[in-house]
């Protein structure tokens, strides 16, 4: 289904689809910003505090710059973003698509010879695949800033020292591998949500089940794929 949706990606820019794609981008990206901001900042702060307290015993707390930056870029940025998006946007997509199936809206589309995959899946897949890396960048920035704040206020690591240290070991590879991960996670979430939505059975119970399954399956796949991608890029 996802593959089929890929075939329709070119239509994302056509006039009739563009609006829907934009709307989905808005729903996925902008509406999730608030919750992502909080989660991202606190992820960075927790990372900084935990590693910082441990490192302080050796007088090495200036290294939190590297610790937070590398962990955020490589893993936590995409991972946290994916979890939030799976739980909020993914479940919403599953519920929406499920409701559409149950209320015969999907059937109506088929009768009108409008491919539901193109009409429903493609915009969501496109929006998630595009917005996930962008949100991951946002998460990274906020996480690193959060770490810097904790460093400055709790661990006596100045901003300057923090960022100098961060630059020392963080590489572009870390950033871009993280973004690749985020992209893959986006595709996973959209595919899972749409798939579960489309296979929703009759009634509100079916929709609820589709939503629940979407969150669980997305989480599991994100975890496993996250590991495997790390394995592929960092041997």
């Amino acid at each position: 289904m996802s593959l089929e949706a890929l075939l329709f990606i070119p239509t994302a820019f056509s006039k009739r689809s563009r609006q829907e794609v934009l709307n989905q981008c808005y729903v996925t990206g902008i509406k999730s910003l608030a919750v992502i901001s909080v989660v991202a900042a606190f992820t960075g702060m927790i990372l900084a505090l935990q590693t910082g307290l441990e490192l302080r015993r050796f007088g090495l707390q200036q290294n939190i710059g590297t610790a937070v930056t590398v962990v955020m870029l490589r893993e936590m940025g995409p991972f946290m973003t994916a979890l939030i998006i799976a739980a909020s946007v993914g479940s919403a997509i599953a519920a929406q698509v499920g409701t559409m199936v149950v209320s015969e809206e999907v059937s109506a589309l088929e009768i009108m010879s409008i491919n539901p995959v193109r009409f429903i899946v493609m915009p969501r897949l496109f929006a998630l695949a595009l917005m996930m890396p962008l949100l991951a960048v946002y998460t990274n920035i906020l996480g690193i800033l959060g770490g810097a704040v904790v460093g400055a206020t709790q661990l006596q690591v100045s901003f300057q020292a923090y960022f100098d240290n961060a630059r020392l070991y963080a590489e572009n590879k870390d950033l871009y591998v993280g973004l690749v991960k985020a992209f893959v996670f986006g595709v996973v979430i959209a595919t899972t949500a749409c798939h579960q939505g489309f296979s929703a059975s009759e009634g509100a119970v079916g929709v609820g089940q589709a939503t629940r399954r979407t969150v669980i399956i997305s989480f599991l796949v994100i975890l496993v794929l996250g590991y495997m991608l790390t394995r592929v890029f960092y041997r």
């Binding site: 934009l22 981008c25 808005y26 990206g29 902008i30 910003l33 595009l130 962008l134 960048v137 946002y138 990274n140 920035i141 630059r167 963080a170 590489e171 572009n172 870390d174 950033l175």
Partner: peptide
Amino acid sequence: VVGFFVMMILLALGTFTIILS
């Protein structure tokens, strides 16, 4: 809003890339 968001993030990404490279 979407356009602005995308632009801002891309800008940040560019800055990031330059700093990290």
